[in-house]
Design a protein around this nucleic acid. Structure first.
Length: 462
RNA sequence: GGCGGGUUGGCGGAGAGGUUACGCAGCGGAUUGCAAAUCCGUGAAGACCGGUUCGAUUCCGGUACCCGCCUCCA
């Protein structure tokens, strides 16, 4: 069996992956807060850990991996959108408008991630479906002395968990010295974070022992991972920006609530995405969503290819140049593997590269060496979610009949061979190329193929 | 201020303490009426300064620069 090795943020070392139960390898990825379209950065962990999911399925069997990715549908930005719609005259209660908004956003998310070739996880729990589990966990934390209620809030007592800061390499005292923590009158300690907060009439809320309110940010992942994967599971993944405080807080909550377990054994974090060398931000004007790129005609498979060219642990720079190159390579591979039945097994070199801490860039280099064997190329690319049937329509040549043009060109060329005047041939060739037609002339004859920029309306008249 | 990541040839981007990464672009050749496509070949690197070593781009230390997190943004 292939030995997978993964860099574990918890130990900062590359470790051999040993699942708790090889018949049920369990992985949790922090999913989106569904307040709007997913931006390009949101897509990176989805694609990266989709490759991990595919690798785990390959090694342990497709039925022996459980992949959970949550939807956080409790959020003040969602509330704000719902409120704005209500004030603009939209019918329905605030709760209904919130549900409407999150349904809409989840639909977009699915469509966009599907376009990137990401497999759907086995479970996609919504926070609002697990409020009861969160309340139970919070009550348990209070009972065990790790949390306290004050003024309608419930806070986690950070000082009660001695390992707090271990994942991110910080000490509580250092963080206080940083003085960026929110000080509030209901906190025992400035580091304590909110498990539950009160909701007024204009906000969604659920009844709880501490009054009507809503959960804080971190508790939903702890509650849902416990419900679906148990007190101990294998892999917990997400963007590096979540390492602190989100994942640190998840660990504190989960380990204090379930001291019998050890939460996630392996923590994987992907580095951030940049755009043309700079952080993607609205103020720099380089902020865009996955849908923006798809609408510009950049295929999801091309986006995926660009992502996987960079190792997940390094910052990944999105550039238009990379997209262009990726598209050219994919076109070449698509042409090579079109209609080919994939081999039964992927190339060992590709599996080995992926098993080495998801070295997707190395795996792609291996793919380049497989152009002589399209069946193996296709089977190997599938581990990366590339060259799969159903995702390649963008690369298919338009179905047009250029035979009349080909005959015309062929006749002109035959004539030119006699007269040695090639000007008419070149004129027609230029016109065809201007319409996006690829012109191939050999001694065997003339071949016309619609190229990437093919435009039938610009074809020269016969 | 605290914590973390990075710096490889024109561009992108890996592995390995000593032997060609790979892709794109470039250059040379085959092929072509000329091209395109394809095939063959080829030059080019390891931020800077020290250390360890027979030998370092690869290990260790330092410097510079870049980036991220510490603000419910993956």
């Amino acid at each position: 069996m292939t030995q997978i090795r993964l860099r574990n943020t918890k130990t900062r070392k590359v470790e051999e992956f040993a699942p708790i139960d090889p018949r049920n390898v369990r992985m949790y990825l922090c999913g989106p807060t569904v307040y709007d379209r997913a931006h390009l950065g949101n897509a990176r962990p989805v694609v990266v850990f989709d490759v991990l999911y595919r690798l785990l399925r390959h090694v342990y069997g497709a039925d022996h991996v459980t992949y959970v990715r949550n939807f956080t549908d409790v959020d003040d930005k969602i509330n704000a959108t719902a409120l704005a719609r209500q004030q603009a005259g939209a019918p329905g209660s605030l709760e209904e408008l919130i549900r409407e908004r999150t349904e809409e956003t989840i639909g977009w998310y699915h469509a966009d991630m599907d376009a990137l070739g990401a497999l759907r996880p086995n479970f996609e729990p919504r926070a609002t479906d697990f409020i009861g589990a969160m309340i139970a966990m919070i009550a348990d934390l209070i009972a065990k002395g790790h949390a306290y209620a004050k003024d309608g809030h419930v806070l986690f007592r950070v000082r009660s968990y001695e390992n707090y800061g271990a994942l991110s390499g910080r000490s509580v005292d250092d963080m206080i010295a940083g003085a960026r923590v929110e000080v509030a009158p209901f906190k025992e300690d400035p580091m304590d974070f909110v498990l539950w907060k009160p909701s007024d009439a204009g906000l969604p809320g659920w009844d709880s022992p501490w009054g009507r309110g809503r959960p804080g940010w971190h508790i939903e992942c702890s509650a849902m991972s416990y419900e679906l994967l148990g007190a101990s599971f294998d892999i917990h993944a997400g963007g590096i920006d979540l390492q602190f405080p989100h994942h640190e807080n998840e660990i504190a909550q989960s380990c204090c609530a379930h001291p019998e377990g050890h939460f996630a054994n392996y923590w994987l974090h992907n580095e951030m995405l940049q755009v043309e060398g700079k952080k993607m931000s609205k103020s720099l004007g380089n902020f865009f969503t996955v849908r923006d790129l798809l609408d510009q005609g950049i295929p999801g498979e091309v986006i995926r290819f660009v992502f996987l060219q960079t190792h997940y642990g390094k910052p990944m720079d999105w550039t238009a140049e990379k997209a262009t190159q990726a598209e050219a390579t994919l076109r070449k591979w698509r042409a090579l593997t079109d209609g080919v039945t994939p081999a039964a097994q992927p190339a060992p070199g590709v599996v080995a590269a992926l098993a080495d801490d998801l070295n997707t860039a190395g795996a792609m280099a291996e793919l380049h060496a497989l152009s002589a064997d399209p069946a193996v190329l296709k089977a190997s690319a599938a581990l990366l979610g590339l060259l799969e049937d159903g995702m390649g329509d963008w690369a298919k040549a338009p179905d047009v009949d250029l035979s009349a043009h080909a005959e015309a060109l062929s006749a002109l060329r035959a004539n030119a061979m006699e007269t040695k005047d090639f000007a008419p041939v070149d004129a027609l060739k230029s016109a065809l190329m201007a319409a996006g037609v690829e012109v191939r002339m050999s001694k065997a004859g003339v071949e016309l193929l619609p190229g990437p920029g093919f435009d039938a309306s610009r074809l020269p008249p016969l």
